[in-house]
Each structure stands twice: as C-alpha cells, then as structure tokens.
C-alpha cells in the first residue's frame, strides 16, 4: 500500500491543490467582497479587504426582513427532511425486502419524479396550493420539495437497507418482536448512517432549490435565496450586503457536511457501493 501511495505522491497533491484552488477562489472572492464597504468594492481593486468591516453582516443580522429569510428557509427545509424520511423509511423497507405486484414499475415511476423539471411544476403547484389555501406557508414548500426528495430518500435508504442481512429480521420475528417494534428498536439503529445520509441529501436539495420555493411564497414564508434576488433588483445593487448574504447561505451547508463527512462518499453513491 505504501508503494501505491508513494507512486501517487507529489503529482496527485498538485492536482488536488489546483482543483481545490479552483473551487475555493470564487467563494473566497465572495467572502472578500462581504468584508468590504460598497465604496471599496467599486473604488479600488484589491485581493483582500484593506479595512475589513462587519457592517454588511450587521445589516443582515439586525434586519428582520433579511434574517427571517434564513429562518423561513430552515423551517421548510427541516419540515421537508422529516416528512421525506418518515414516509420513505417503510417504503424503502418494502422495496428492499419483498417482491410485490408492480414493484419495479413503481420504483421507476418514483424516480421519474426526480427527473421532472421544476419549471414544469412551478405553475400547477402555484395553482394547487393557492386553491387549497396553503400558498405562502412553510408546509407548501416542504410538500412541493417532497416531489424530488422522497424518491431520492427511498432510493438511498433502499440501498443501505439491502446491505443489512435478512437473517436479522427473521431472528427478531422468531424472538417475538412485532414489526413496528423490530423496525424502531433494531432495524433503524442498524441503518442509522443511511438515515443520516438520506437526511443530508434531503436537506441539501431542499436548501439549494429556488424556483419552486420562490413561486410558492410571497411574504411570510419567503426563503433567503428569494430575498437576495429581490434586493438585487430593487435597491440599486448593494454588493457588500449581497455578498454577506451569500456567505451566510453557505454556512448551514458547511456545518451539515462536517457532520456527515465520513459517510458522504458512500452517500453520493446512493448506498450502492
């Protein structure tokens, strides 16, 4: 193994350094801008802030119309993650353990929802949720995001569950466990990492989505991403605040990645490695 590592050696390190530099430069530039005043951004070109200021962040964290955007986003993202995982768990179990009438077709049909362009659904969703009085609520966005998160969660969980030997189920039933008790007490701890990964993906895709969440909200549930676009068009481009808001949207993602870093690679393979 040491030999393989050596032969990779310096070349690999240079490749990785170059790639990570490419990834980080645009983010650094945003961070750089967020620490400058507008006058400095537009006035002189500099690679780092000459007079670092936290004013832009202060603007966001003290103004409810800004920081409520983060709260709204977090509320519907968490709601969506909980709903998606709750309904996906039993379904994934069914797909991984049993064969039943139409199972393969059903599985593909679920996946087709992941392939549906959000643009196709934007208008019908708007009409559907308006007509049942859910327009501009967190639950509307959470339900709309289930469109692509539930299939994904079923897919990931099914992969992880198939890795657990079926003998465990059978032994538990022989020991007199009922299905719900077996599922919660024995099975769920066994696939805990799978649940974590599935939750991570639901969080991620719900957090980054904008088209549906913007279409379904106006004031009281408006996500941060939409708050940003409106400020750009309205107040004559406040670059510093815009950059600070952007940096703040990156932080929840970075925190979540840190918690699942050991499972991330397997998770991206949807539990199928």
């Amino acid at each position: 193994m040491a030999a393989v590592a050596e032969s990779k050696g310096r070349g690999a390190a240079i490749v990785m350094a170059a790639y990570l530099l490419f990834l980080m430069l645009p983010i650094y530039w945003l961070l750089n801008m967020s620490l400058k005043t507008n006058a400095e951004i537009l006035g002189a070109f500099s690679l780092w802030p000459r007079n670092p200021t936290l004013d832009n962040y202060r603007t966001i964290l003290t103004d409810p119309s800004w920081y409520m955007g983060y709260v709204n986003s977090l509320i519907y993202v968490v709601m969506n993650t909980v709903i998606s995982i709750t309904v996906a768990l039993p379904a994934a179990y069914a797909f991984s353990r049993y064969r039943f009438l139409g199972d393969k077709h059903l599985f593909f049909w679920l996946l087709t929802n992941r392939m549906a362009p959000a643009a196709v659904f934007a208008l019908p969703f708007f009409q559907l949720y308006s007509s049942i009085g859910l327009f501009d609520t967190h639950i509307a966005v959470a339900l709309a995001h289930c469109l692509f998160n539930v299939p994904l969660a079923v897919w990931i969980l099914e992969g992880f569950m198939s890795g657990v030997p079926r003998e465990i189920d059978e032994t538990a039933y022989i020991d007199g466990y009922s299905f719900p008790r077996f599922f919660v007490k024995i099975f769920m701890p066994l696939i805990a990492s799978g649940i974590g990964v599935a939750a991570f993906f639901c969080f991620m895709f719900s957090w980054v989505e904008l088209l549906l969440s913007r279409t379904l909200t106006s004031v009281s549930a408006k996500p941060i991403a939409a708050t940003m676009t409106r400020t750009v068009s309205a107040s004559g481009l406040d670059w510093g605040v815009l950059a600070a808001a952007g940096i703040l949207t990156i932080i929840p993602g970075a925190l979540v990645i840190w918690f699942v870093r050991n499972y991330i690679a397997k998770g991206f393979a949807l539990g199928r490695v």
């Binding site: 645009p26 070109f45 957090w207």
Partner: peptide, 29 residues
C-alpha cells in the same frame, strides 16, 4: 471531501451570483 462538497450545498442562485460577480470586468477577480 468537505471542501469538494461545499459547492454542492450552495443555493443555486447564490452560485449564479458568485459567478456573476467573479466574472465582472470591473469588480470580479
């Protein structure tokens, strides 16, 4: 892993904003 996953978790319009700024001739690197 953590650094590579970072771009994946940035809201898509922020990705757009990052590159819109980054590519500008007057203020983008």
């Amino acid at each position: 892993l953590v650094l590579m996953a970072l771009p994946l978790l940035i809201p898509w319009n922020v990705v757009g904003t990052i590159w819109q700024v980054f590519g500008r001739v007057d203020i983008g690197l």
